[in-house]
Design a protein around this nucleic acid. Structure first.
Lengths: 142, 142
DNA sequence: GTACCTGCAAATTGTTTGCAATTAA
DNA sequence: TTAATTGCAAACAATTTGCAGGTAC
């Protein structure tokens, strides 16, 4: 019922072998409500199972990505960051002061993108929209 | 009057020393109507001045970037690609079959982005919008 | 003359991979 | 049983940097 089981279930459906390391990484991913990079995933996973290696983290995130279970985002600088692919499509606003990532979605922008691509004679396969911004001082944010 | 002189002029205005290597790289950049990566810039520059090193290419593009003369784009995969920053702001559609980059601009999308950021309590510093797409067969493209 | 620039090679960063040992199914 | 998975270390790709010598101004 919880997210760990959802991710684990998705993996089993895909016929992946559920090793201790994978379970550990899945549990880390399921409890993450941020956008950790590989090093951070390894740190959190190693806190549970100290023997886990960086190579396994990389192999696992790539595997999950290929299976459509995990989304990888290479923002403008620094290492790639990951999040569960289970949620609906969205874009990202990156707080360049804190590194925090805020998700948003604009059907209007999506529609305009489709229109632009079509007018150029293309069919969209994927897209990337990232806003790099600073918090406005004295403004409360949701 | 031509773009080589424009770029060179911009560099001189910034007080940069105009070495032979920089002039070579500037001339390569000025005649490029595509989005070359560092290796490609080096290839083209080396065709003019075989002694030029990769390190100098990297140092030069970074310098020009810092001075606002050159724009660096790290697309979804492969090395970063560069283009003159002299032109108006625009976003990119990448033909994933050929790697070709098509520029477009949508004031409407820009406006929506501003609105989204404002509503979240942020001020946009920069943004990145890339559309990865395939050509529609049997359609003529501009 | 001197601060800046260059080439070279070595270092860095983020990520991938070959291999021999281990393990899930 | 046996094909998949792991840890380790080495390999990789893109980019940066220390250093000793060279050059624009």
């Amino acid at each position: 019922m919880d997210r760990a089981n959802e991710l684990e279930g998705a993996c089993r459906e895909q016929g992946l072998r559920m090793t201790g390391q994978r379970l550990t990484i899945l549990s880390v991913l399921s409890r993450a409500d941020d956008h950790p990079d590989a090093a951070e995933l390894h740190r959190r996973a190693a806190a549970i199972d100290p023997g886990i290696s960086m190579a396994t983290v990389y192999r696992t995130v790539k595997l999950l990505q290929d299976k459509g279970i995990l989304a990888r985002h290479a923002f403008a600088d620094g290492p790639a960051r990951y999040e569960s692919a289970a949620q609906a499509h969205h874009d990202h606003l990156i707080d360049i002061e804190s590194g925090r990532v805020i998700e948003f979605h604009s059907p209007e922008i999506e529609r305009l993108q489709e229109e632009i691509a079509r007018n150029l004679g293309f069919r969209i396969v994927s897209h990337r929209l990232e806003i790099y911004a600073k918090p406005i001082k004295g403004r409360k944010r949701p």
